[in-house]
Design a protein around this nucleic acid. Structure first.
Lengths: 170, 170
DNA sequence: ATCTTACAGTTCTATTTTAGAACTATAAGG
DNA sequence: CCTTATAGTTCTAAAATAGAACTGTAAGAT
């Protein structure tokens, strides 16, 4: 599988990974949500090479995740602003941060806290079912093919070689 | 910033990205959630080179995301099973899939649907506030330094050069 | 009028990663 | 003895990334 093909895979995860699934892109997006907008801002905040930064920004604009907007004439200068498509990445960012907060903090605790303006409290993000509102856990979810599926053979429980031999013998 | 340093950054997102933020790792984890457990299973499902697969699996085991469990003796064979730390990645996976379902589907529709066993319906994941239960949106969240912060200077609103000149002149 | 700085890139070489294919090893089954 | 299944390892070529220097426009300082 080549990287260009990823975006054509019949899998929403593969397609998304094709767009945002590399390390610098994710960090650039973090900066966007922290209100960084300009080339130099990204560069100094991240220490990314200018070459790669330019390339990643171009890609994000092509993908419709950032919009490149002029903020001054002569010399022409542009800012990079999240589109709605980009803002919709927020749950991914929060899910990533939350996992890090749970499993990667050192003894000093969380680097950042998130306050919900509506209720005023520091919170954690919780993922719930859109239909019943209950928190989701992996084993309560059954995945099945949708209209855009190509094929997804059901996997049977793995057998040991000996078990296979036994069942063939029977 | 080098990749080894990522995991020591005072940012839960950078640390998490250091662990799972590359394309193959994310796809391997997708397969784990679809119940793939064995080397050949990952390899044939993903088309990843055997070399990289071996390396990524080792890393995931080192990080405590997968556990390597023997399922037969002679020749010794192992399966890779998600630990709790690995299972906790589920919201990240679902958030990624959901963004793809929203922004990357073709005319045929979603490749996969997710059914919630508790309520029986196909659902979308929704991220809510742990404190008040309301759905979260980026602009209702205020980010501020926590106990593990190193420093996070507040960013002022960007100015144009002309505006800067004006304010200096004033 | 010239000099320095800010900004947003582009270009170049060296290093690191990844792709792709072939090879190794153990044991079962025919 | 030969083939297959499984889980790797090793090798070379191609691609991506790091790191530093360079380009171009214009403002402000000297």
């Amino acid at each position: 599988m080549k990287w260009k093909e990823l975006e054509e895979e019949p899998c929403s995860m593969a397609r998304t990974i094709g767009v945002i699934g590399d390390r610098w892109t994710l960090l650039i997006l973090r900066e966007c949500f922290l209100r960084t907008r300009r080339f130099e801002g990204f560069q100094s905040a991240l220490g990314i090479t200018r070459h790669l930064l330019a390339e990643r920004l171009k890609k994000l604009v092509r993908q419709g995740i950032l919009r490149r907007i002029p903020y001054q004439e002569s010399p022409k200068r542009h800012e990079y602003i999240l589109t709605q498509k980009g803002i919709d990445l927020y749950p991914i960012m929060m899910a990533i941060v939350h996992w890090g907060d749970t499993h990667m903090v050192d003894e000093r605790g969380r680097p950042l806290l998130h306050q919900h303006r509506k209720c005023g409290k520091d919170f954690d993000p919780v993922m719930v079912c859109s239909e019943c509102g209950e928190p989701l856990s992996a084993k309560e979810v059954h995945t099945h093919p949708g209209p855009g599926a190509r094929s997804l053979p059901e996997k049977s429980a793995p057998e040991t070689r000996k078990a296979k031999a036994r069942s063939r013998a029977a």
